[in-house]
């Protein structure tokens, strides 16, 4: 905490914190209003089953968006997450087809290792090669996606080829709650712990809010930036394993286009794209809002042709609303 105080004037820091707190409250309120309106028109919305479905549908998003959040806090962006998910999903499921006796922890470890390696490559290009993150990950997005195709020569891994244990990995609920949700909660707790209670976690915020000052404070900015891309890759790797298990398939276009959602969730959840602020709660709320929007647009029978427009509009509204509030607060503050 000492370093943070040194880095930025106390007022702007607390303002940013206040803003993100407010954003979290605002989104929570928005979700409640939306939920109330939707349940008026479609009572099925409020059922336990539907709630479970929403959570299941956003679990993978939460895992990847948490990695994306750490990247965004350092003023970066990782557009290659979708391709990393596709590549690990394909490689891990292929290994399980070849060696069906592999225990599940080994499959998960393999996914984590593959993801971290791909993330490390991003990190090298960005932190050491000085390539702007958006360019580097735009490039690796195509490269990793091309590797998926090269790896499988276009064929897919289908449900009937996968060992039963692997298909149950994401779906079984030995503790009363589906494993997939437990994975997301575990990752959430770990990331929250990492960001708040470890030196390395706090350094991420320091580098994001002011890289020069962080350097003066003795933080190796380069190393921190390298680390966040490795972490983003690591989580994408885990997501790849879970994706293949949940959807019982690994295809050449698995998770294609998913990167936009992983950016939208943190941004809607108040993670500042200019770096330095944002927290896990915001990301979860952002992902939950996206999940509720998708779920309710289907339930209230909005024409499928209007769904995409409505989704885009709601994201814009969330961002504009937030900016307006932040402005008013800044005016009052000065």
């Amino acid at each position: 905490m000492l370093t943070e105080k040194k880095l930025a004037p106390a007022r702007s820091m607390s303002l940013a914190q206040l803003a993100s707190r407010f954003r979290e409250l605002g989104i929570a309120a928005f979700i409640l209003v939306l939920a109330a309106l939707v349940s008026l028109r479609a009572p099925a919305f409020l059922s336990v089953d539907n709630f479970r479905d929403i959570l299941l549908n956003i679990s993978i998003l939460v895992i990847v968006a948490l990695g994306q959040m750490m990247v965004i806090i350092t003023r970066g962006i990782d557009l290659s997450v979708s391709s990393m998910i596709g590549l690990t999903a394909m490689m891990v499921s292929s290994m399980l087809v070849l060696f069906p006796w592999l225990p599940m922890p080994a499959a998960i470890l393999l996914g984590l290792a593959l993801g971290a390696t791909l993330g490390a490559f991003n990190g090298l290009i960005i932190a050491v090669g000085n390539v702007p993150p958006i360019i580097a990950t735009l490039g690796t997005m195509s490269i990793y996606r091309g590797m998926v195709f090269f790896y499988s020569q276009g064929s897919w891994v289908n449900a009937s080829d996968m060992p039963e244990g692997f298909r149950r990995l994401a779906k079984a609920s030995p503790f009363g709650v589906p494993n997939l949700i437990l994975f997301a909660v575990a990752v959430l707790l770990l990331v929250a712990f990492f960001l708040r209670l470890t030196r390395a976690g706090r350094d991420i915020y320091a580098v994001g809010s002011n890289p020069d000052a962080a350097r003066f404070a003795g933080i190796r900015a380069q190393r921190v930036i390298f680390t966040v891309y490795v972490l983003s890759g690591l989580l994408a790797g885990l997501a790849g394993v879970l994706w293949a298990s949940r959807f019982e398939a690994a295809q050449t276009n698995t998770a294609f286009g998913f990167e936009l959602q992983t950016v939208a969730a943190p941004v809607v959840g108040g993670v500042n794209i200019f770096g330095g602020s944002g927290g896990v709660i915001g990301v979860v709320l952002g992902a939950f809002l996206l999940g509720v929007i998708e779920n309710s647009l289907t339930l209230v029978k909005i024409s499928p042709f209007w769904q995409l427009a409505a989704q885009g509009l709601l994201i814009l509204l969330a961002v504009v609303f937030d900016a307006a509030v932040l402005r008013r607060m800044q005016k009052r503050g000065s």
């Binding site: 950016v263 209007w306 769904q307 427009a309 409505a310 989704q311 885009g312 994201i315």
Partner: peptide, 13 residues
């Protein structure tokens, strides 16, 4: 990023 979805959505609409 927001208008990316919004404008394409209007095209579908």
């Amino acid at each position: 990023l927001g208008t990316f979805s919004f404008y394409r959505g209007l095209a579908y609409a």
